[in-house]
């Protein structure tokens, strides 16, 4: 059941796991460790992805050895950044509910912020995220990690860390399912004629 009306599975659970592990190592390598790093996941699905990448970074840095403050460490490394109010298409949609924003206690000033999202498409979500970040503080640098880059950029934005480059047509839909929200891990490509019956976050996925 890898195709048909349910769409084509382009990343399996283990593919996703490997991609996130690789992204975690690339982040550490490029930034020479986890010092001054803050990962901000963009809700909805960027938030759990950021926590997974964060956990792998901590694991690689062996900081979970401090078992007592292990959770605290994840919370001090990873946050969530809701960009709803900064979207440029707010008035084209019914009012969107706000998602929580949580910034690690150390803030983001002079930190390296890695934005984490599930799918990179037009780039508009990331533009909104850059605006949202500037309201909160002034990071030393901002980097971008995405699970899937499906192309079709409308703004001069590129990802620093990419789980999978996925050439798509505009009429296709990429659907990311995550254990934390959907009960399963998979990235599914739906063709032109595919109907996403439950409609789960179809709009968000196009971000």
């Amino acid at each position: 059941m890898s195709s048909g009306s349910l769409g084509t599975i382009v990343l399996t659970e283990s593919d996703i796991s490997r991609a996130l592990t690789r992204i975690a190592h690339e982040i550490l390598e490029r930034n020479k460790g986890a010092q001054d790093l803050v990962l901000l996941g963009i809700p909805t699905r960027g938030a759990p992805l950021a926590r997974r990448v964060g956990a792998r970074i901590l694991s690689a840095e062996n900081r979970e050895g401090d078992s007592v403050d292990g959770i605290d460490s994840l919370d001090s490394l990873v946050g969530a950044l809701d960009i709803t109010m900064h979207r440029d298409d707010l008035r084209r949609q019914p009012t969107r509910a706000l998602e929580p924003t949580r910034i690690p206690a150390g803030g983001i000033d002079d930190k390296v912020v890695v934005l984490v999202d599930d799918v990179l498409y037009s780039g508009r979500t990331i533009r909104a995220a850059l605006d949202a970040i500037s309201d909160i503080g002034r990071p030393r640098a901002v980097q971008l990690a995405v699970l899937v880059d499906r192309g079709h950029r409308e703004l001069p934005i590129r990802a620093d860390y990419i789980g999978k480059n996925l050439p798509t047509s505009r009429s296709e839909r990429v659907r990311v399912q995550l254990r934390e929200l959907d009960g399963t891990d998979a990235v599914v490509l739906h063709g032109t004629d595919a109907v996403v019956l439950d409609g789960t976050d179809a709009v968000v996925l196009d971000g």
Partner: peptide
């Protein structure tokens, strides 16, 4: 204000 105004009205959409 956000919930009443931020989204487009259906006619505008």
């Amino acid at each position: 204000l956000y919930l009443l105004l931020a989204g487009g009205r259906s006619s505008e959409r």
